[in-house]
Computed example of a mutant assay.
Amino acid sequence: MLRFLIPLLALVLFMGYTVFAIATSDQSLGAFASELMSRPTTALVVFDVYLALLLIATWMFFDARKRGYGAGYLALFYVITFCFGSAGPLAYLTLRGWHDYRRTRR
């Protein structure tokens, strides 16, 4: 049961903070992204995060294929991942754990 509860808790907390941060921000997301990319040091952090997300997306692809899911199953997780970062893999891990939990309870 912890295989889906821990990522679910992390997903809820992360998305809750994301909504809070966006709602209370004094600038648009576009302005924020532009500001991040305007300096080499912060751009490096953005590139590093997206490289890590790409590695995680690759793992998700092979894990989903091993479990019998196609690319269509992953499409939503990829959109979430590349728009909201960690939320995509956390959602994937939550559903993966839920499927495993349901499979063992039968």
Rank of each mutant, 00 (worst) to 15 (best):
R102L: 15
A33P: 00
R65G: 04
T42Q: 10
V19R: 06
R103W: 07
L36N: 09
L53A: 04
F14M: 12
L90V: 02
F82W: 08
A91V: 06
V19Q: 08
V49S: 09
F77V: 03
Y92D: 04
L29I: 15
L11D: 01
S34K: 10
L54M: 14
V79S: 06
Y78A: 10
G16I: 05
L36S: 05
R103D: 12
T104W: 03
M37E: 05
F62Q: 07
D63H: 03
L74N: 03
S86T: 09
A10Q: 04
M37P: 01
A57S: 15
I22Y: 13
L11S: 03
Y92G: 03
F20L: 15
M15G: 01
G30I: 12
Y92V: 02
A52I: 15
W59G: 01
A64E: 09
V49T: 09
L36G: 05
F77E: 00
T94G: 05
P89S: 06
G72Q: 09
V45R: 08
A33T: 10
Y78H: 09
L9N: 03
L8E: 01
A21F: 12
Y17S: 10
L90D: 00
F20W: 15
D48Y: 08
L9M: 14
T94A: 11
S25T: 09
I80E: 03
G88C: 04
Y69G: 00
G88P: 02
Q27S: 13
L76C: 08
R3K: 14
T94Q: 03
G30L: 11
M15F: 11
V45H: 07
C83P: 00
T24I: 08
L76E: 02
G30Y: 08
A91N: 04
L5V: 12
I80Y: 01
L95I: 10
M60H: 01
Y101C: 06
T94V: 07
G88E: 00
A31I: 07
Y78K: 04
F20H: 14
T81E: 03
R103A: 15
C83V: 14
T104E: 15
T58A: 14
F61A: 11
L51P: 00
A57V: 09
S34E: 12
Y92Q: 05
R105P: 00
A71F: 13
T41Y: 13
S25Y: 06
M1A: 14
P40R: 10
Y78R: 03
A75H: 01
F14V: 11
D48C: 08
G72V: 08
L76I: 14
L74Q: 04
V12K: 04
S28D: 07
A33H: 07
G72N: 12
R103I: 04
L93M: 15
G72C: 08
D100I: 02
A33W: 12
F84V: 04
R65S: 11
A75S: 14
L29E: 07
A57W: 03
A52Y: 09
V19D: 03
S86I: 11
V46T: 06
I80R: 01
R65T: 09
F84M: 11
L8P: 01
Y73R: 03
T41A: 15
G70D: 13
R67Q: 13
R39L: 11
F61M: 13
R105N: 06
E35A: 15
D63Q: 07
M37S: 11
